[in-house]
């Protein structure tokens, strides 16, 4: 194929690299604990990419992208620029009010806050274990849309949680795009800290909302708390 007829393949071409087909042998190594994530070559961005679903998070120290689609859920994109490691989570707050005597929406200690803090800590702990320094963390926040005209503003509650959490933990928000009525697709590059955001058409709301509901349903038991083991 003559070079002039080559399809444009994104960043690799811009960088003057040959747009050769990428095979799995060129995959950057996955960090321990993240080997099960499927990665694919993304032609638009000219890099390897991993898609995360509601409830998941992914951490990387390689030149790859993490992508997700958000309705009312929140994604935090967190990295240590000095260490060159970063990651993204995708979570929402459980809504089952029957789990425990505390008011589940109590901003200090309710089930919702407990689970949200857990989702944030999972991602941040993994970064700290890889040598990231808490004071250096650069955090970008996305999501929390009000994508369905439901009685309760689930997205708004998720936003309220993450703002409280950031303040309480003393983290600064490096960038954010929260709220609104449209779903979002976020592509995050942990190596550079760049985040690409695309607003999706509301026609996709029902599908996204359906996936978020499935996640919520599976959340109930998990959010209530982990196991307890007493040693002999």
């Amino acid at each position: 194929m003559p070079s002039s007829a080559r399809p444009f393949t994104g960043a690799s071409e811009l960088a003057g690299l040959a747009p050769v087909a990428q095979d799995a042998s060129q995959l950057p190594p996955a960090l321990p604990g993240f080997e099960s994530f499927q990665r694919f070559w993304d032609r638009d961005n000219g890099c390897w990419m991993v898609k995360i679903l509601p409830g998941e998070y992914y951490v990387s120290r390689s030149e790859e992208a993490i992508s997700t689609v958000l309705g009312s859920c929140i994604s935090a994109c967190v990295r240590d620029p000095t260490r060159g490691i970063g990651g993204m989570n995708h979570f929402m707050l459980p809504q089952d009010a029957t789990q425990g005597p505390n008011d589940w929406l109590d901003p200090a200690i309710g089930l919702a806050t407990r689970y949200g803090s857990y989702a944030m800590e999972n991602l941040i702990n993994d970064l700290l274990k890889l040598g990231a320094v808490r004071e250096r963390l650069e955090i970008k926040l996305f999501g929390g849309g009000r994508i369905l005209a439901a009685m309760t503003d689930v997205g708004g509650r998720n936003i309220e949680f993450i703002r409280n959490y950031m303040t309480l933990e003393g983290y600064r928000v490096a960038a954010e795009d929260l709220g609104g009525t449209q779903p979002r697709k976020v592509v995050y590059f942990p190596a550079s800290g760049r985040a690409r955001l695309r607003k999706l058409r509301p026609v996709e709301n029902r599908i996204i909302s359906h996936h978020e509901q499935l996640y919520l349903d599976s959340l109930g038991k998990q959010a209530a708390g982990g196991e307890v083991e007493l040693f002999d």
Binding site: G100, N102, I109, R114, Y115, S117, Y118, E121, Q222, A223, A224, G225, G226, E227, V228, E229, L230, F231
Partner: peptide, 10 residues
């Protein structure tokens, strides 16, 4: 003495 896994359950 014991090990409790988060999420935290009061």
């Amino acid at each position: 003495t014991g090990w409790l896994v988060k999420p935290f359950n009061p």
